[in-house]
């Protein structure tokens, strides 16, 4: 059984975890083009080598970040998402278009 280190709960069987896709910067939804948003939502880089991904410990619904080498199939490091996302992200409504 492969093991993964959960930053909250310690070493656990890999079966307890769910993969959540690559960690990528979110474009500003109010300003980016549809193509940029589609790239963010749907596309994966699927790189061979070092990747940074979201993982979830299912038993606690705890999301964290893992750095993995997809060529060697090794988990290099796992850490709390707070190390990357230090500030709360607020979502604002886009301003309505001005009337002519």
């Amino acid at each position: 059984m492969k093991l993964m280190h959960c930053p909250l709960n310690g070493w656990r069987n890999i079966q307890e975890f769910t993969h959540g896709g690559e960690v990528v910067a979110e474009p500003d939804p109010n300003r980016c083009s549809d193509a940029e948003w589609a790239e963010f939502v749907f596309m994966e880089e699927n790189k061979a080598g070092m990747v940074r991904e979201w993982w979830c410990h299912t038993a606690t619904a705890y999301w964290f970040i893992a750095e993995r080498d997809t060529v060697k199939d090794e988990i290099i490091r796992t850490y709390d998402a707070g190390e990357v996302f230090k500030e709360r992200i607020e979502f604002t409504r886009p301003e309505p278009p001005k009337e002519a």
Binding site: N9, Q15, T58, A59, T60
Partner: peptide, 9 residues
């Protein structure tokens, strides 16, 4: 311990 017991969380 928050984990899997008999396949349940």
């Amino acid at each position: 311990a928050q984990t899997n017991v008999a396949r349940l969380n």
